[in-house]
Structure formats: C-alpha cells, structure tokens
Amino acid sequence: MEHGDVPFIPPERFPGVPGALQLVWDKIAFRSSISFFGSFASSDSLWYFDVDAHPGVRNYVALTIDDAPCRLSPKNSMLPQVRSLLKQHGAQATFMLLGKFIAGNEDALADLLKDGHELGNHCLIDKSYMNWPLEDFEDAVDECSSRITSLQRSAGVEEGVRWFRAPHGRLNAAMSGILKRKGLTNVMSDTYACCPVIQDGDFIGKFLGKTAQHGSIIVIHMPERGFREWCWVGLQTLLCQLRERGLTAVSLGRLVELSHTVAL
C-alpha cells in the first residue's frame, strides 16, 4: 500500500467534520487566503493569472483534475463519462496523473489527449514526498513523466510534460530545483473546495463556480465509482456555473497562451 501497489481508501472521518469544514470553508477559502496559506508549503509555483496584468485571460479559467485516472481499478474509472461531460460543455482540462494508476486506463487517457486535453505529472502515488530522499523523488517524477510521454506518443500528439502538482501541495526548495531542471512548473490553484474531505458535490460545484475569477486555476478531484463519486456531481455543477457566468474552462497550457496575448 505504501508504494501505491493497492489503492488507499481513507477511513471514515468523524461524524460532522465534513459539514463543519464546509461551513468554515465557505467563509474563508478565497483567492487571497488559499494562495497565502499555500505559499508556506510551496514555492516557485503558478497559482493564477491576474487579469489586470494578463488581460488575455479574461473570461477564461484553467480546469485541473487531480488524482487521475482511477485509483481503484480500470472498471471503476469514470474517464469516459468525464470526457463526455467536458465535450458537452465545450470545456478543456488538464488531468494530473498519478503514475501508479495509469495501467489499464491507457486507451481512455489517449482519447482525452486526442480531444485536446492535457496530462500533468502528479508523481507516482498520492503521498507527500517531502520526507523522501531527493533521488527517490526525482525518480518518481521521471517515471510519471515517462508514462505520460508514452501516452502522448500512442495518441499521436506532441510529446512533453510541462506541469507538475506536488502531492498534498508539499514542495521544498530542493524539490523545486529538481522540477526546474526538468522544465516542469509546479501548479497550485486559487479555487479549491477541499473536495477530498467535503463530500457534498452540490456545494463543491457551486463554491468553485462562484469563487472562480478571470485567470483562475481550479482544482477538483477525479471521481470514480466507489471513491469520491461526489466529485462527479461537483464537476457537473461547476461546469454549469461557469457557463452561467460566461467563463470558459481551458487547459493550463491554453491559459498560459492566453496570458501572453493582448485582449481586444
């Protein structure tokens, strides 16, 4: 389990904790607070684009989906449903992959690439690498990137991995140096609903939808059958909310491109 060979399913939280966190989160979790507190655990990271400095991002947000593709087994995967939902809304996303869970999901991931979505490196397992030897962290980064480039090759799209998201958001200066040498940018976010703990999909989607701003980077976790299925409702609600507000969900790569353009 420690090395990701079998899925880790967290124990039930104490009754009332998700609901209590939901009430608190609705009051305190906004761009400034998320970026401020997250900066203590991560440096040299991309959080969002300020529309005043980057007018080209107006009306656009980046949608990132963590812990893809599916940690239980390929039969639990909801990648086809997520792919269909994104297509229905004309949305693009960057899927942050856990390398240990790619096997058995290759065809579905290749289909995402063919649709224009992106794949990012979320390391091999969903565990902080802060206390691991640096060489082990580097090996994990390289292995996940190698598996992603293999998927890109099979899908016939341009090869190369640009984005990394540190598991649990934990990253130190030495780890940042490794990422920099490999041409990887650690991506955090300014729009997050704590969806691994808060298990209310309607709240998650509405919270993300109302707090997203021009140039935001949104995080939601990958739903799968039997694990975090509430994120499926959250994603549906979020996409509807964005559409109502006139915001278009794009991949990280596309948002970076837009940040370099001058709005008309």
Rank of each mutant, 00 (worst) to 15 (best):
G56V: 03
C70H: 04
R71M: 09
F164C: 03
E2Y: 14
N59H: 13
G56Y: 05
R147V: 00
G16C: 11
M1D: 14
V262P: 01
G56T: 04
N131M: 12
D107G: 05
R153I: 09
N121G: 13
Y48T: 01
H117L: 08
G226W: 03
L46E: 11
E138M: 06
H89S: 03
S39A: 09
G253E: 04
P7H: 09
L23N: 10
I65K: 02
D111T: 12
H260S: 12
A173T: 04
L238S: 06
N105R: 12
P133W: 11
Q199V: 08
A140L: 09
N172R: 00
N186T: 00
L79I: 15
R153E: 14
L239Y: 06
H221I: 01
E106R: 11
E244H: 15
G201R: 05
F95Y: 13
R71F: 03
T149C: 07
R13E: 13
S35R: 14
A140F: 07
G90P: 08
Y48G: 09
K206W: 01
F164E: 01
L86A: 07
R243L: 01
K180H: 07
T191G: 05
G16H: 09
E158N: 08
V262K: 14
S176F: 02
V57L: 01
L113S: 09
S154K: 15
S176D: 13
A140S: 14
H3C: 08
A173P: 00
G215E: 00
G116W: 04
L238M: 06
E229V: 11
E106H: 12
E158I: 04
E12D: 12
W230F: 04
V187I: 12
D200C: 04
D52Y: 04
W47R: 07
V24D: 01
N59K: 13
F14W: 13
S146Q: 15
T237Y: 02
C194N: 10
R225W: 02
V187L: 10
H117M: 10
F95D: 00
C194T: 01
L86Q: 10
A103C: 04
L23R: 15
D142K: 14
V219T: 12
E138R: 14
D67W: 02
L238Q: 06
A140T: 03
L238W: 02
V256Y: 11
C231W: 03
F101R: 14
H168P: 00
Q81A: 14
R225Q: 09
V82G: 12
R58D: 02
Q199W: 00
S45D: 05
N76H: 15
R165T: 02
L238D: 06
F227N: 05
E257L: 09
F164Y: 11
R181M: 06
Q81T: 09
G169Q: 00
F37D: 00
P223C: 13
D136T: 00
F95A: 03
